[in-house]
Design a protein around this nucleic acid. Sequence first.
DNA 1: TCGGTTAGCTTGACTGACCAAGCTGCCTCT
DNA 2: AGAGGCAGCTTGGTCAGTCAAGCTAACCGA
Lengths: 243, 243
Amino acid sequence: MSFEYTPPKYAQLIAELERRIESGEYPPGSPLPSEHQLMAEFGMARPTVVKALGVLRDHGWIVTHQGKGRFVRGRPAIASTQQVRTGRELLDRKEVQVSSRLLTTGPAEAPNRIASYLGITPKSSVVLRKTLVTRDDEASEVSSTWVPADVAEGTALADSADLKQGVRRYVEAAAGVELDHIIEHVTARNPTPEERDLLDVKASAALLAVYAVACDATGKPWIVVETVLPGDRHELEDAYPIR
Amino acid sequence: MSFEYTPPKYAQLIAELERRIESGEYPPGSPLPSEHQLMAEFGMARPTVVKALGVLRDHGWIVTHQGKGRFVRGRPAIASTQQVRTGRELLDRKEVQVSSRLLTTGPAEAPNRIASYLGITPKSSVVLRKTLVTRDDEASEVSSTWVPADVAEGTALADSADLKQGVRRYVEAAAGVELDHIIEHVTARNPTPEERDLLDVKASAALLAVYAVACDATGKPWIVVETVLPGDRHELEDAYPIR
DNA sequence: TCGGTTAGCTTGACTGACCAAGCTGCCTCT
DNA sequence: AGAGGCAGCTTGGTCAGTCAAGCTAACCGA
């Protein structure tokens, strides 16, 4: 018997058309072959061709005009700017893989801002993990993770050893939830005395403060990660469609 | 004859299932009726039912497990947190509708950072429009718009009258392009002397600087809008899925 | 009791066919 | 020559049916 995997026909058509668009064979603005032409060339039934073309339209590769045809828009520029979102990177970062120094770990009281993001009352019990991340032998950012105490209980989150997996995995496993989306809050502020020493910046320096709130599909928050970055060394980038 | 519009069957099924999920009739985690049950209840063929369910899956309402069924995730939380992206708001903002004061308008040389974003050589000719926006009688932000001189030529962008439409419209009309997506860069810095006076902040204040670069579908940049906000009065928010 | 087989459920992929609706250019009739 | 209509292209939506693949539970034999 054979374990070869052949992708579905419609997926093969998608891949082939994306290739032709990227190679310039179908330049932006030009019409795609009609459904019947594609049926003949690839030996597929119309619903199969239509399904592939629908995916390409949803992904922004082409536009369709009923009665006229389908036209190339080009490779979706937004997909090519490899999206590395700050918040997600923080949640999945493994401490053992980045050069970081563990500063604080264990129970704490939730500050106002964090409690607000977590939907709990201020000064509730939480577990705090604070690390200093260095890049190229230079202090780069201070990262703090807050998780409600009842969630963190029994996990390695309160241990003083570097985490082997991202925070997200621990919480998903402990609470039995699937984290679904992240809400990011970004603001600017001056450093606290502690941050001033750790990051080796002046008291008047402008810092970027990023708060990433990880929520499940119902919108319930589970984790807050705060990252503080010196503005003169860091820049956040984000791309999104206008429509 | 009749001009009544009846939505396609699959769209009706989508709307009905979304309604049932929102009303709690199909709570999160519960299984949806199987394809055959939906076929029977709504009198549709299977491909029609499957098409509707595929859209719901793509939009994040449900998850599907081959062999087990389809399960409710709930109203996509990410869609309900009404996304008001800073960059898009800046591009479509009508100066006549916000309380703003025009500071500078006319030809200028492109600073390094702006030239880099626009993909032109530094000190190239651009048209600059700088405004001070006030909210609740308090200086709120300084917003600067840069457009290459050859694009802005002949438009109202260089005039000293408030724009009646968003910058985006003027550029799309003048250049005959359709702007497709925005790339945002966010950083933190201290104010320039001019910004210090305008925003009435201390020289050591931490400001959020947001650069929104508007590009067409091919990725070519057309407009850069810089907005400078005092960090203690502003916070940017952004939501996105984890996967 | 345990373990493997199987029947019956689910979704995934695909086919060939049909009709409707929108667009374009030709062709005929005036 | 001009106006109208029609033919032939395009995409949009729907149907009844087939086969494959994944999951579950009941069943049956060792």
